[in-house]
Design a protein around this nucleic acid. Structure first.
Length: 532
RNA sequence: GCGCCGCUAGCUCAACUGGUAGAGCAACUGACUCUUAAUCAGUAGGUUCGGGGUUCGAGUCCCUGGCGGCGCACCA
């Protein structure tokens, strides 16, 4: 397979050089009526032909709605016949009873029933009604009323086909019980198909649409809050000659004209701090990072981060900012700070508990990791079943200890601060304790949500830390950072005291939507190639 | 990367120890003027993920490949 794109499904150009453009060796028209197609597809193809015969345009050019479906339902005055509305939507259910028919239209966040009385329709509209299928987009015009069973409904006096659906959507049957709760029977549930055909997932599962509406509102809310606080939004390179700002392996690519190797960024950090040097004293960027690492419930190779930098601030300012950004956003988007997540109740209201890195280990693992030597750390990890411990340096050992005993215990957001300095090559040493860095992470529900520090602004110190990284890299640590000479040059001009913060947008959305898999909050999560 | 589980009709799922592959929804034909998981009668729908093997006989057992899920590792 040279091209796995879904749009080219079934092309057989490789097998038959004269067959370019054929679909499974057939001209496209014959493909739809071939016996190999499921009957619903063949039937829809026949209906499409019939519609054309009758002079209907199956793919319209536009439509003017007077209301979306939710607004239309709300426009019903409460009794009697309401105003005439023009609405559009996709047919989600269809109940034809001969002389009359009911169907439900759906749009991005609403649903409205339409009632058709054949006697009252023009002959053409009645013909059209007979050729409709689930999944078709239609427009409807008529007055609102309430059915005997109490559902606000539009009585369709006029009907317009907007787009004919040739492929049956995997609709389940929707039952609405006495409490108004939607119960979906059967439906579209196969995880793999849902991700591969996200369009069908979104079309059929309103709760999936809701996740992405929430995601959009979360991002808009963060952006508005930062804009109002005097931050300016910027864009920095994704294609970078040197990657840095985090510990991760990059994706590598190549620019032809420049004939030069480039990397997809693993973090925005170094470019953003250069802007603070340039006197843009509050900047942020919301964008994709790319890390060439494993894939699991909390990691997708491309993911979205908010990074912000504020001059004249330190990590304590960032702690306050992290608290307010997360809790205010939660209040605004989901209406509160108590969230049910993976069987826990997570309380996002500030202030969050603040514990130092070594205190946290003391508390949850029961020993003083700062005093412990490497052998001691490795032995403890080995006893806990980590057989790779003897190959780790001290940084990795401490990190392993932290993720083994501390992280899983933290449910409510917890600020873990004062990390060992060797784990934090871009952070300032802690005042009065240079073995530690002024850095914190926010751990919520067992995973890292925020990473922040007082930014290292001493160019000499930065050079030495880079050099240390370079040594670690030479010693085989594939994730150690490269030496970025231009960044040091920038620091030499003078980086004011600066606080910086990174917040994982995907994980925040997971938290606010109750999802335990990052794939559920990314529209197109990465998957292996599909054979179509 | 390793381990476990899964892949059957367009969708959701059945098929005991190997013995003719089924149901509901969707579809089609017909009936029905306020239905709503509409109902009723009938019809059609399958390369059981691909390849190989064992067997008189494989959805089922074995080998191999693909894809997915979960866990572990990795990802500070």
């Amino acid at each position: 397979m040279t091209d796995g794109s879904i749009g080219d499904a079934g092309a057989t150009g490789d097998a038959d050089p004269t067959g370019i453009g054929l679909r499974d060796d057939l001209p496209i028209e014959q493909w739809y009526e071939a016996p190999a197609r499921p009957k619903p597809i063949r039937d829809r193809w026949t209906k499409l032909a019939r519609l054309r015969e009758l002079g209907f345009e199956p793919y319209a050019y536009g439509w003017d709605s007077s209301h979306d479906l939710t607004a239309a339902r709300e426009a019903w005055p409460g009794e009697g016949e309401g105003p005439t509305v023009r609405v559009a939507g996709r047919i989600e259910s269809l109940r034809d009873m001969g002389k009359s028919a009911f169907l439900h239209l759906g749009d991005r966040n609403g649903r409205l029933q339409a009632y058709f009385k054949r006697q009252q329709l023009s002959e053409r509209d009645a013909q059209l009604l007979d050729l409709l299928d689930l999944g078709d987009w239609i427009g409807v015009e008529g007055p609102l009323f309430e059915t005997r069973t109490g559902e606000v409904t539009v009585r369709a006096d006029r009907l317009t086909l907007l787009s004919k659906s040739l492929r049956p959507l995997p609709y389940g049957k929707v039952e609405v019980d006495e409490t108004g709760e939607r119960i979906v029977h059967s439906g579209f549930a196969d995880t793999e198909s849902r991700y591969r055909q996200r369009y069908a997932d979104l079309a059929v599962n309103p709760e999936v649409r809701e996740i992405f509406l929430v995601r959009a509102r979360v991002i808009a809310s963060l952006r508005r809050r930062l804009d109002e606080s005097g931050f300016i939004e910027v864009e920095t390179p994704i294609l970078q000659p040197l990657y840095g700002g985090a510990f991760a392996r990059p994706f590598t690519t190549h620019h032809n004209t420049l004939d030069r190797q480039l990397y997809l960024r693993i973090a925005d950090e170094l470019y953003l701090k250069r802007l603070i040097v340039g006197s843009l004293d509050r900047v942020y960027e919301i964008g994709k990072n790319f890390r060439n690492e494993g894939i699991d419930r909390t990691h997708n190779p491309e993911f979205t981060m908010l990074e912000l930098y504020q001059a004249m601030a330190d990590y304590e300012t960032m702690m306050d900012l992290a608290e307010s950004l997360v809790s205010e956003t939660a209040k605004e988007i989901v209406g509160g700070n108590r969230i049910e997540w993976d069987g826990h109740t997570v309380d996002l209201s500030p202030p969050w508990e603040r514990v130092t890195f070594f205190e946290a280990i003391e508390r949850h693992a029961g020993f003083d990791a700062r005093a412990a030597d490497m052998t001691d750390l490795a032995e403890r990890l080995q006893r806990a079943g980590r057989d790779d411990a003897d190959s780790m340096n001290r940084t990795r050992l401490l990190d392993a200890v932290f993720s083994e005993w501390v992280e899983p215990e933290l449910v409510d957001p917890t600020i873990i601060y004062d990390y060992p300095i060797e784990m934090s090559p871009l952070a300032k040493p802690k005042r009065g304790d240079p073995e530690l860095a002024e850095r914190f992470e926010v751990i919520v529900a067992g995973t890292e949500l925020v990473n922040a520090f007082s930014e290292l602004n001493d160019p000499l110190d930065q050079w030495k830390r880079f050099a240390e990284q370079a040594r670690a890299r030479a010693g085989g640590d594939a994730e150690a950072q490269g030496l970025d000479r231009d960044y040091v040059r920038a620091l030499e001009y003078g980086l004011p005291p600066t606080g910086g913060l990174g917040l994982g947008i995907d994980r925040l959305v997971m938290l606010l939507t109750g999802k335990t898999t990052i794939r559920e909050v990314i529209l197109y999560p990465i998957l292996r190639e599909e054979e179509i």
